[in-house]
């Protein structure tokens, strides 16, 4: 893959002092675009590989300035507030620029690999002392492979530890090329059953599991398993058992498993994206349940951590 400093990518956040996305103090670059559509997704703004408007209804005064500013005719006034036709909106961001009350924000920033690298490198001092570095997350970093490779290479050349947080859904060719610049992989296991996986995320997990085996055995990159715990969807003891079984027997016993309890921080984001119909309301798992699941993982001889 041809990597270049000028390769452009679309990101939606650069989070400094990320302390739950790999070792040490890290900077996490959240990339836009994801091949999966997990029902419980708490970063719905990460799904589309294009810029989107974040809209805070309660701030909107219905002044209508945005309606005129939009060159795509995507905004109308409805019940005294503005409303965006998301099909027409391509994310030019004009409305966000003119909105006097900051009810509109643009999600997604087009940047070059070099620019992202420079933002990441600002915290180099903190990485050095803490054993931290950069983490590419998303969305799905593998959905923008050229950009991901370019950023990772720049970081590695500067001595910054690199981590990729991935769902693993990409061609082996892509996986191989991107991860060859990764010092660590955070690998998501959302469900072990192919049919259930497809039901909840939109895709089957065969490719994902296959890639996991190859990453572990052929690329031999250190790996951490990340299992989101979503009540009623994937939190059964059976699923966790089978997932751990896969990790311990088909990958290795040295893989640390992070069980990530579902949280509701993303709930308001659906509202902001005017996608309330897609929001599913789930109660976070109880502490006792998390501990029980942790025990299951430990019973396979694997280290299990609750949270990041």
């Amino acid at each position: 893959m041809i990597e270049s400093h000028n390769t452009k990518g679309l990101i939606f956040n650069v989070q400094y002092y990320s302390i739950h996305d790999g070792p040490g103090i890290r900077t996490t670059v959240f990339m836009k675009g994801c091949p999966l559509k997990c029902l419980w997704c708490q970063n719905p703004e990460s799904q589309r590989l294009q810029r989107e408007i974040f809209f805070e209804l309660e701030k909107c005064t219905g002044c209508g300035i945005c309606v005129q500013a939009c060159s795509e005719g995507a905004i109308e006034l409805f019940e005294g507030r503005s409303r965006t036709n998301r099909k027409k909106c391509s994310g030019t961001g004009r409305c966000a620029e003119v909105c006097p009350v900051e009810a509109r924000k643009i999600m997604g920033r087009s940047v070059t690999a070099k620019e992202v690298f420079e933002e990441v490198a600002r915290d180099a001092l903190f990485y050095q002392r803490s054993g931290g570095g950069v983490t590419l997350s998303g969305g799905e970093p593998l959905a923008q492979p050229r950009f991901a490779v370019s950023v990772l290479k720049l970081c590695k050349d500067a001595g910054i530890h690199t981590t990729v947080d991935t769902c693993g859904y990409a061609s082996w060719d892509t996986v191989q090329q991107v991860l060859s610049y990764a010092d660590l992989v955070l690998y998501d296991f959302k469900h072990i059953d192919p049919a259930e996986h497809k039901r909840y995320t939109g895709v089957s997990n065969e490719l994902i599991l296959d890639n996991a085996r190859k990453i572990y055995h052929e690329l031999a990159i250190p790996m951490l398993a990340r299992v989101p715990i979503i009540p009623t969807y994937n939190d059964s003891a059976d699923n966790i058992k089978a997932t751990t079984q896969f990790i311990s027997s088909e990958l290795g016993k040295n893989i640390k498993v992070h069980l990530l309890p579902y949280h509701r921080l993303g709930e308001t984001k659906y509202e902001r994206l005017e996608k309330m119909d897609l929001a599913v309301l789930i109660e976070p798992p109880a502490e006792e349940q998390m501990l029980a699941l942790q025990e299951i993982v430990q019973s396979f001889g694997l280290e299990a951590v609750l949270g990041g």
């Binding site: 002092y17 302390i19 739950h20 040490g24 103090i25 001092l125 903190f126 002392r129 803490s130 931290g132």
Partner: peptide, 13 residues
């Protein structure tokens, strides 16, 4: 404890 360790590093840096 890991979180606190990172914060300690932040302070020292």
């Amino acid at each position: 404890a890991e979180d606190l360790g990172k914060l300690a590093t932040l302070i020292k840096t």
